[in-house]
Write a protein that binds this DNA or RNA. Structure first.
Lengths: 323, 323
DNA sequence: TTGTACGCGTTATCAT
DNA sequence: ATGATAACGCGTACAA
């Protein structure tokens, strides 16, 4: 593999001049530049990242940290990652997907998702020198991107209210993440604005986030239903609900309206196709990476922290209808 | 950030000895080793990958090449990538996902998918010095992993034959990839073995690989059907077929049996859940990466090429029944 | 505009 | 078992 010295020799200049055409071409005379570019072409010269990284004290690598290892096969995470990856790879930044902070591995920046408050302080992110972007609004002092979960279920509930429904349930699942509380809050907000008092029996949360579990809960609850619509905390839950309804010969949407949340594939494959609060997951991934890349490129300590709340889009399909 | 020199000074030895405890600890006296390990701990020393890479002539990066850019959001590719990523990241190898070979970027190895015959020769993979693993059985001279598509649809067809079906259609889509021909071949093989002559009208391929397109074709064909079962070239096609059947009041599976292919989520979300030839996509990704890592670690030119044909698993669910 | 000299952190070689 | 020295390829500071 040829080096700048080989190129320099062939072009009859010093290595320094070659380095210049690589980094600031305008500072080199057109004649020399031409000869050098030709030599680069002929020799098939490729800049040695390691050598460059050594002097620049960079790595060309960012870590993508996700605490839940099993999530590697979750469509949501995969889509998120695809978005990040698109931006990072475009910028020739390699990725390392890890499940702890791996502090022994140097990198140029990190994207961290599913972070608990305790963890961050332990590793004093922010006090750290490398840029970090969080997925989730955990820390005011750190850049983050998050989805507006509250607004998402608010819009879904609003949609049902506008269709004439007044008795609307909220199906949710057990998890320690804040997003699930936010989704319930959005539902409650919309109900409150319409002056409807939420009955305790309308809040159903004895399930996990998979369709089988949701179906089971729904089968029980739907027998003695006193509501005409359900806001679900996820598409998967909504899928379970529609399956249960089918089994009980309750028609969706003519007898029961159902909304989902997420929009990562499940929504369009289910029958009927779900009205859902779609998250632009791929885009969220893109933004996380874009912000990080920006921070890496402008290595300043200008601390105007970026906080972006990305909106969901209410996609109206076949699972909701007029009361 | 402290270097080996700092550690050496603190431990009262030379930098070389520190380097030794890092790479071949047995060649250092226990006493010195103890002092050095302590110094490393106290100073929080971390090896500088760039410096190491510079002398070792490695990069710590592999390229994952996929020619179809839009596939970034395809669940199949995402799952495949997740499998590769799991292995690579475990081995502290960063990933760069690109859509051409980007020959100006050095790396330690490549995983290439969706390669056409022409491309490879242009870039003379194999003659190249870095290890390359292919997804797809394109080149005998290069390591590859592929899925046994032929066997997959063979098994699906066999399953339908055992259920008593004799008039079985094959729904396929238009694409230039060899896998689709292999899937048809498997179907034909099973039919031939049963002594059944495939009627031309049973082969339906005027669609693309999405459910809407498949539904449209199925709506047309199913009106004048002369078969009782369909082997579909993908789950997405099978989904479209079941949707069309529903619209035509044809019950699946009692009146029509349908099998899918892939098993990347669609199969379990559709209604009814699909009997399908499930590919272990995540595992395929793992194997691709495992082979590459192995090649990178043992930099020998021992040319016992690895070719692995990974088997599909016939998952029997609710879309197939006795004739 | 161009070149010289040096440093980045690590490892290999060859001594001791 | 340990150390001195050179080399990896590139960028920066400074000089010309």
């Amino acid at each position: 593999m040829s080096t700048i010295y080989d190129v320099a020799e062939m072009a009859g200049v010093s290595a320094m001049t070659v380095s210049r055409v690589l980094n600031s071409p305008d500072k080199v005379s057109p004649a020399a530049r031409k000869r050098i570019e030709n030599a680069i072409e002929v020799l098939g010269y490729k800049t040695n990242q390691a050598a460059r990284a050594l002097v620049a004290k960079t790595t060309g690598i960012v870590k993508i940290v996700h605490s839940e290892k099993q999530a590697a096969q979750d469509p949501y995470f995969m889509t998120l990652f695809a978005g990040m990856s698109a931006v990072l790879s475009e910028n020739t930044i390699a990725q390392l997907i890890i499940h702890d902070f791996a502090p022994h591995l140097k990198c140029d920046g990190m994207i961290v998702m599913g972070l608990k408050k305790g963890q961050a302080l332990d590793l004093n992110i922010g006090a750290n020198s490398i840029p970090v972007v969080l997925f989730g609004k955990e820390f005011d002092s750190v850049d983050w991107v998050d989805v507006d979960n509250t607004m998402g279920s608010y819009l879904a509930t609003k949609h049902l209210l506008e269709l004439g429904h007044t008795e609307i349930a909220f199906f949710s699942f057990q998890i320690e993440e804040p997003y699930i509380q936010e989704r319930e809050a959005g539902y409650r907000k919309a109900m409150a604005e319409s002056g409807i008092e939420v009955q305790p029996s309308w809040i159903v949360s004895d399930m996990t986030n998979d369709s089988a579990s949701a179906k089971k809960s729904a089968l029980r609850v739907l027998r003695t239903t006193n509501f005409s619509a359900i806001v679900c905390a996820s598409d998967v839950v909504a899928l379970g609900v529609t399956q249960a309804a089918k089994e009980l010969n309750i028609d969706v949407p003519s007898e029961l309206s159902v909304t989902g949340f997420d929009g990562v594939g499940v929504d369009v494959m289910s029958d009927p196709r779900l009205t859902t609060a779609r998250q632009p997951v791929f885009e969220v991934g893109r933004r996380l990476a874009e912000i990080l890349v920006q921070r890496i490129k402008s290595r300043q300590a200008n601390y105007d922290v970026i906080h972006e709340l990305i909106q969901t889009e209410l996609v109206v399909r076949d699972s909701t209808a007029k009361k």
